[in-house]
Amino acid sequence: MCLEINLMDSNRCVFCEITRGNIKTRKIYETKHSIAILDAFPLKEGHSLIISKTHSPKIQDLSSEASNDIFNTLYFLTEKIEKAMDCSSSLISIHNGKDSGQEIPHFHIHIIPASYSNRNRSIHSLFDKKDIQTDKIDEYWKKISREVGSTQSI
């Protein structure tokens, strides 16, 4: 096992420790603002993570420069990981905050190789849609559009 730190210490972020080099990992790529590693607890073969080098819990906490760097890393690595793992697709996942299922409050992106034989399900199958009030879609659109500063319809 690569993790060589007491992860139960609530004052220490495992991803900060990884980016500082205090935890041995299977590093596959590194940039100014990110480090890419194999996930220590993979969901599938080749499951990788891109981790921000700054302790920023959510995407909106990143600087524009860091965000650009991280997403350029995602763009670069996705095809390489798919090719290395001999698969046709990948699931790209970001849990943006605790309520979305983010277990470590440090921005990271999952790249999970996938192929037809994996029998992957669509993102819609992960949620219970009975709680959605489809008659309120226009209301949701108006709220979000006001925040964005746009009121154009298509």
Results as ranks from 00 to 15, higher is better:
N96P: 07
V148I: 13
S100H: 07
T54G: 13
I50M: 05
P113N: 05
D135Q: 05
D9P: 07
D128H: 09
Q133K: 09
K27Q: 13
P113H: 03
D9Y: 01
H95G: 06
I111N: 00
I144W: 01
I81C: 07
F15Y: 08
K24I: 14
P57C: 03
K129M: 13
P105Q: 14
K143V: 05
C87Y: 06
C13W: 01
I51R: 13
S56N: 15
P105T: 06
I132Q: 02
D86L: 10
G46L: 04
S145P: 01
Y140A: 06
H110G: 03
I59W: 13
K27P: 04
K83D: 07
E65I: 13
H33I: 02
E103H: 07
A36C: 07
C16I: 02
H33K: 13
L62S: 11
A40P: 15
T151V: 00
I59R: 12
M85D: 14
T73L: 10
E147K: 01
D99G: 07
E45K: 14
I132C: 09
L38G: 08
S48V: 04
M1Q: 00
F41A: 09
S90V: 11
T151H: 08
R12P: 01
Q60S: 15
F127T: 04
M8V: 06
S63D: 05
P113M: 08
V14S: 05
S48G: 13
R146A: 06
Q60F: 15
P113T: 07
N6P: 01
I50E: 07
H55L: 12
F76L: 09
A40C: 13
S153F: 00
H55R: 10
L77K: 09
I37K: 04
A40F: 12
T78M: 03
T25L: 03
F41S: 12
G46Y: 04
N22K: 14
Y29G: 05
I111T: 08
A84G: 12
I137F: 08
N11P: 01
H108N: 07
S67T: 05
L49W: 13
E82K: 15
K129A: 11
Q60A: 14
S90L: 05
K83I: 12
I144D: 00
S89T: 05
H124C: 03
D99K: 11
N11W: 01
F76P: 02
H47W: 14
I59V: 14
F71V: 02
M1L: 03
L3E: 02
K143W: 00
N68G: 11
N68F: 11
S100I: 04
I109W: 02
R26G: 06
N118K: 08
I123L: 11
K130H: 09
L74Q: 08
Y116S: 10
